[in-house]
């Protein structure tokens, strides 16, 4: 049983009279502890696919099995629990809560699964330390650089010990130097903790951090190969 198994997933958006097929019968499997980079030109369906893998969106057609469970059969709250426990998100735009400190942003996922306040605090501190943000706990997002904000987002994705991290263009808003640091962080998480990393990127040198590259074009997978 694979960790992630997509079976003929399609996503169709209806725009007026036209059907827009953002994903066209995508089938793929990803195993535990893989490091996968997804590439493809703009509008090819990468984000759509990531959102479905992240249980933020549902396919129009096909099945998505996560840990052997058909997510199409789950309720809203079941999916929320999966997002909380099994999936960590990192977005291009960081998606941190403004007016909320770094520490509290990292505590957020634990708010929804019953950790005691002091335990939340300790774990959030530890997670921030892991991404190299010790001493920045009380900074608000607008007091942090883009790279630091993305580290907060990564800490937030890690804090519940999710086995899968989904990152949609995590370095899209960052300069080369910072991008490399963020990617090294992902590599370390993948190698040391065995966390499955799936990330979308436009840049070859970013994709080169992965061990496997899946290429999208017009809602289909055109190549899927290991990085040598």
């Amino acid at each position: 049983m694979s960790l992630i198994e997509a079976q003929k997933i399609s996503k169709v958006y209806r725009l007026g009279d036209i059907d827009l097929r953002a994903l066209d019968h995508i089938s793929s499997t990803i195993e535990k502890s893989e490091f996968v980079a997804i590439m493809g030109q703009s509008g090819s369906g990468k984000s759509t696919f990531m959102n479905i893998l992240g249980c933020l969106d549902t396919p129009t057609d096909g099945h998505y099995f996560l840990d052997g469970i058909d997510t199409g059969r789950l309720s809203r709250d079941d999916l929320a629990e999966i997002r909380n426990k099994k999936l960590g998100f990192v977005f291009q735009g960081f998606n941190l809560l403004s007016r909320t400190s770094a520490l509290e942003n990292v505590e957020l996922p634990m708010l929804y699964n019953g950790f005691a306040a002091h335990e939340r605090r300790d774990r959030a501190r530890q997670a921030l330390k892991n991404v190299g943000l010790e001493g920045r706990e009380d900074h608000h997002p607008n007091q942090l650089s883009g790279g630091q904000q993305q580290r907060v987002a990564i800490a937030r994705a890690l804090v519940n010990e999710a086995p899968i991290i989904l990152a949609d263009e995590p370095t899209g808003n960052l300069d080369t130097r910072t991008s490399q640091e963020i990617m090294e962080l992902f590599v370390r998480l993948n190698q040391e903790s065995g966390i499955t990393v799936i990330l979308v990127t436009h840049e070859h040198d970013i994709a080169a951090y992965g061990k496997r590259i899946i290429r999208f074009s017009d809602g289909r997978i055109i190549t899927d190969e290991a990085v040598i």
């Binding site: 998606n95 941190l96 937030r156």
Partner: peptide, 16 residues
């Protein structure tokens, strides 16, 4: 709405 989206993405349930 965006804040609600972020909270949902990291696991907030209906009643949260």
């Amino acid at each position: 709405t965006r804040e609600i989206g972020i909270r949902m993405a990291i696991g907030a349930k209906t009643w949260d």
